[in-house]
């Protein structure tokens, strides 16, 4: 790639670079008692993502900057963070879509224990995920395929897209103040099996979610729907689970 660029300097010059100011909310548990904001300047291309800015800071300016990322292409769900006050995946947010005339604020997602810089402890999030039994439960022996019509598959298609990045759960005002709430992501993944025609434990999951800290904690603020990097209609899914709890079946 680099040789191609060196052979065609004119084309490389044509792409306008710009300087962006990144305000990163740092926290080092060894030295800090409170998080603090730190300012960085980065040279960016319009097609660069916030993740590229974080890489540039970590690789060229301050190696102690700590954040999670794995695939860097919006599939693994590692780099959910609050960018300009909204939960986004750093690897799916282009710099050109942000207002570069002002600093870009990046901080860890809210509501989960802060470990360092942009890294939070995801365990409470995964604990509620495990509690909704997010796996297929069927009494029939798997000696042949479990058939399903296209309509039956479409019923829960939206909620199969979840990558467990926690952008939804940590955007929920109820979850910020009430850590016991299952949170949108757990309900989305319960929805994925509750409405699966092959699964036989819908009632069990509906019973788990028919709890003081279950679906009824949802206050329909739609922050989760707006935050989801996969475009899942999260509040819609929660509303469907609410209706199923009232009906008593999926």
């Amino acid at each position: 790639m680099s040789t191609v660029l060196e052979e065609r300097p004119a084309a490389a010059d044509a792409i306008q670079k710009f300087t962006a100011t990144m305000m990163i909310r740092r926290f080092d548990p060894d030295t800090d008692t409170e998080p603090r904001w730190q300012e960085f300047s980065v040279e960016m291309l319009p097609t660069d993502r916030v993740l590229d800015a974080l890489h540039q800071i970590k690789w060229e300016q301050d190696g102690s900057l700590t954040f999670r990322r794995s695939c860097a292409h919006g599939v693994c769900g590692s780099d959910a963070m609050r960018i300009n006050g909204r939960n986004r995946l750093a690897c799916k947010t282009l710099m050109k879509d942000l207002d570069i005339s002002k600093p870009v604020y990046v901080e860890a997602i809210k509501g989960l224990p802060l470990e360092k810089d942009l890294v939070v402890d995801m365990e409470p999030f995964f604990a509620s995920y495990r509690e909704v039994q997010p796996f297929l439960q069927s009494s029939s022996k798997p000696d042949k395929e479990r058939l399903q019509s296209a309509e039956q598959r479409a019923r829960f298609d939206d909620t199969t897209k979840c990558i467990l990045c926690a952008a939804c759960t940590s955007s929920c005002p109820v979850f910020w103040t009430d850590g016991q709430y299952f949170g949108p992501a757990a309900i989305v993944n319960a929805h994925r099996f509750i409405f699966d025609s092959r699964d036989e434990a819908s009632e069990v999951r509906l019973d788990i979610l028919n709890d003081k800290e279950g679906v009824w904690r949802c206050r329909t603020t739609f922050n989760c729907t707006e935050a989801c990097p996969r475009g899942i209609q999260v509040t819609q899914a929660i509303a469907e689970v609410k209706a199923a709890v009232l009906r008593g079946h999926a």
């Binding site: 603090r36 904001w37 960085f40 006050g85 005002p173 739609f222 922050n223 707006e226």
Partner: peptide, 23 residues
């Protein structure tokens, strides 16, 4: 790299949309 700014330690206010502000 400028030194960290003292004082401002608060996180940003979550910028929800219609749904959050109606709530």
């Amino acid at each position: 790299i400028p030194a960290p700014r003292p004082g401002r330690v608060q996180g940003t206010l979550y910028r929800g949309r219609e749904g959050m502000w109606s709530w």
